[in-house]
Simulated assay, not measured.
Amino acid sequence: MTQQIALVTGGNKGIGFSIVRALCKEVKECIVYLTARNEERGKAAVEELKKEGLQPRFHQLDIDSLESIDRLKEFLKSTHGGLDILVNNAGVYKPNDVQAKMIIATNYTGTLNVCRALLPIIRPHGRVCNVASLLATMSFTKLSTARRQKFREAKTEDDVSKLMADFVESVEKETLIEEGWVQAAYDVSKMGVIALTKIQAAALNSDSSKQDVLINCCCPGYVNTDMTDHKGIKTPDEGAVTPVFCVLLPANSSEYQGNFLSDKTVVETW
C-alpha cells in the first residue's frame, strides 16, 4: 500500500498545530505535512513537535496566494504522487465587518482555492475536513428567509462564491440588514465553507475515480487560542479531536459525506 500523505493548513499554532500532533501520533506510516504562511514559524513548529519524538515535515503555504497553492500541489504530485488526508484549518477571525473582504477572501476563497487544487490529487479512500464553526449555523437562523433560501439552492461553487461576494458588497454599501444578512463576517465566511462542503461532496459522489473519498466540515469548539483571545474553554488538543475524527473515518462511513460535525456528531445545518 502506498504510504499515506497528510497535510494540515495553518499548522504552526493553535488547533492546526494540535491536529498535526494528533495525526503524527495516530496514523502509522504516514507523512504529515505542517503548512504555514510564515516559513520561519512553520519550521519552528515542526522542530517543537520533533522534540516530542514526532516527525512532521514542513511546506510553505499561504492560502491567499494561488502561486503558493500551486507550488504545494506540484510538490505533492512530483514527490508523493497524490494526497490522502487534507485538513483545511487555516483561517482568520476579526470581530469587525470593516475587514469583511479580507475575512471572506481567506476563510472562504482561500479554502475554495486549496480544494480546487488538491481535491483532484486526493487518492481513493482519502479524507478531507474543512474547518467551519457552529457560529455559522447559529447566524444562519438569523438571515432573512430569502437569504437562507439562496444558501439552500446553491448547487455550484460559483453559486456560493456569488453569495460571498454579495455579502461583501452589502458590507461596503452598509445594507446588510436590508439585504437579509447578519453583521458577522466570520460567521458568513463559515456558512460559505459549509455550503461549499456540501457541493464538493456531491461532486465526489459522482466521480468514479474518487472511490470512498469523503469530505466533511466541522466545528472544533470554543478553543483557547489566539483567535479567541485565549478565552476558549477547550484546549487546542481538545479542539483537534473532531477534525482528526473526520479525517480518520474508516471505510463505509458514507453517512458522514458532506455533513457538518461538532463533538464528533453530525449537526443539522440547512
Rank of each mutant, 00 (worst) to 15 (best):
E67W: 00
K28T: 13
V160H: 07
D263W: 05
N216M: 15
G10R: 10
G239H: 07
K77L: 11
A165L: 11
Q257V: 00
T141V: 15
N216T: 08
T175L: 11
S209Y: 02
Q4I: 00
T228Y: 10
D212Y: 01
K101V: 00
L66R: 14
T111R: 03
K43A: 03
S189Q: 08
I31A: 10
L76K: 09
P124W: 05
V8A: 09
Q60M: 09
K198R: 15
L49I: 00
F58C: 03
Q200G: 03
C219S: 15
L163P: 07
Y256R: 04
A22C: 03
G232N: 12
A90Q: 01
V160G: 08
K155L: 14
C30R: 07
T265V: 11
Q55G: 09
A22I: 00
K198E: 12
C24L: 10
C246S: 01
P243Q: 01
D229H: 14
V171T: 08
S65A: 02
N107P: 02
G10A: 05
Y256C: 03
V128T: 04
S206Y: 07
T175V: 13
G82A: 03
D212E: 13
L34D: 06
A132Q: 11
N89P: 01
T242S: 09
A132R: 14
T175Q: 14
I121E: 09
L143T: 08
V247P: 05
E48R: 13
K264L: 05
T109W: 05
H59D: 06
G110A: 06
C30H: 12
T9W: 05
V188T: 13
P120L: 03
V87Q: 05
G221C: 11
A202S: 15
Y93E: 05
G180P: 12
G82M: 06
V244P: 10
